[in-house]
């Protein structure tokens, strides 16, 4: 499968922030609406997958991650997300496990 690559620091910010736009800058909502959602939709249309590289930032708040990946699963179903999304996180390996949980429990 071919992949469209997203780099968090290059394509969005080195300081990802809170969950919603109203709470502060570089929110999960902003990343989802402006970058991840359109890219994922385009990838599905073209039978491609998406990779997100989380390395190279200052760190992540849990609400940001839940909004982004839980939000993606709520819109496209957890199955589609698991099938078409690859997370790269070498600096904070535990994030992959956390994100898997956000995707699994997105609709609870």
């Amino acid at each position: 499968m071919e992949y469209i690559n997203i780099s968090m620091p290059k394509d969005f910010s080195i300081t990802p922030g809170p969950r919603n736009r109203s709470e502060g800058d570089f929110s999960g909502q902003q990343f989802f609406e402006e970058i991840l959602d359109p890219t994922f939709a385009e990838a599905l249309k073209e039978n491609k997958g998406v990779t997100i590289n989380l390395d190279g930032t200052l760190g992540y708040g849990t609400s940001f991650l839940e909004e982004v990946f839980g939000g993606l699963a709520r819109k496209y179903t957890p199955e589609k997300v698991f099938k078409n999304l690859i997370i790269i996180s070498n600096e904070e390996e535990y994030l992959k496990n956390d994100i898997d949980n956000y995707i699994k429990n997105a609709n609870k």
Partner: peptide, 19 residues
Amino acid sequence: KSCPGIQRVLLELMQNTHN
């Protein structure tokens, strides 16, 4: 050095106060 734990604590606390 990068300290993602510090960034997480700061974000969680600021968000808790805000919400």
